[in-house]
Simulated scan of single mutants.
Amino acid sequence: MITELKEGYVKTEREHGISTIEFFHPQSNSLPGMMLEKLAQTIHSESHDPATKVIVLRSAGDKTFCAGASFDELAAITNEKEGLAFFTGFAKVINAMRRAPQFVIARVHGKCIGGGVGLAAAADYAIAVEGADVKLSELAVGIGPFVVGPAVERKIGLSAFTQLTIDASMWRSADWARRKGLYAELHPEKEGMEDSINRLSNNLAQSNPDAMKELKKIFWKGTENWDELLVERAAISGRLILSNHSRNFIQKFKEKV
């Protein structure tokens, strides 16, 4: 099943209990509001299908896994209500991944920026390839990683999260991300990454779904308030994106591209 959007798509393929959800956007797999909404809906739908035993989240293309928020949509936000609605899109995706009773495997084939780091962190098991460097660029934009922050901090710890957040212009290597726990595995070539994803997803598809469901409850214990927390965080970003600092940064960024 494939859903074409104005720009980009979200599509799903299911085989032998493995639901593969792929997203694509021509601007480095950035995520506008419609794609965030569709991605959250798709994860929710697949996770509630009894035929789904494991979910693989991936993006298309050869370079960036996910560049985070769409700068075109950030530039179009004119009030706090619109800002809240946009950033709540990231909250919906993260919460859909969190609430899915199945394990979510992230295939990270390239760089992760901002919200892209949040997607990798919200996965239960991320498998990456060399070059999948990470950066939380939100502070440079004039906001902060408020919505994805809980997921990133949960995965890599407060110290590493603050490092990423404070030095918002610095890339951290894929090996750094593996050592901090964001990536469960890091492979030198894409072939090794693909082989590992296939092996793990097939093994999980043959595992007891009730056991995996109970394990996931344990893994995510303490996040029961995220339905409210992430929306509260989205409101903060929705307000800050209206600041002169953010407006000027976005304008300069768009002039470069």
Rank of each mutant, 00 (worst) to 15 (best):
F65Y: 09
F65S: 07
S70T: 02
F71L: 13
F71E: 03
D72N: 10
E73N: 05
L74A: 10
L74I: 09
A75Q: 10
A76K: 05
A76M: 03
A76W: 03
E80S: 12
G83H: 03
G83P: 11
G83Y: 02
G83S: 08
L84F: 12
A85T: 11
F86L: 14
F90I: 12
A91G: 14
V93D: 12
N95D: 14
A96E: 07
A96M: 02
R99C: 12
R99D: 15
V104F: 03
V104D: 05
V104A: 08
A106V: 13
V108T: 03
H109G: 13
G110V: 08
C112Y: 00
G114K: 00
G115L: 03
G115M: 04
G116K: 01
V117M: 11
V117G: 04
G118H: 09
G118A: 11
A120G: 04
A121N: 02
A123H: 02
I127A: 11
I127M: 04
I127E: 06
E130V: 13
E130N: 10
A132S: 15
D133H: 05
D133R: 01
V134M: 08
V134R: 01
V134G: 10
K135S: 11
S137M: 12
L139N: 14
A140G: 15
V141N: 05
V147I: 08
G149S: 10
G149M: 11
A151I: 07
A151G: 08
V152I: 15
V152T: 10
V152Q: 01
E153N: 12
K155F: 08
I156C: 02
G157Y: 05
L158M: 13
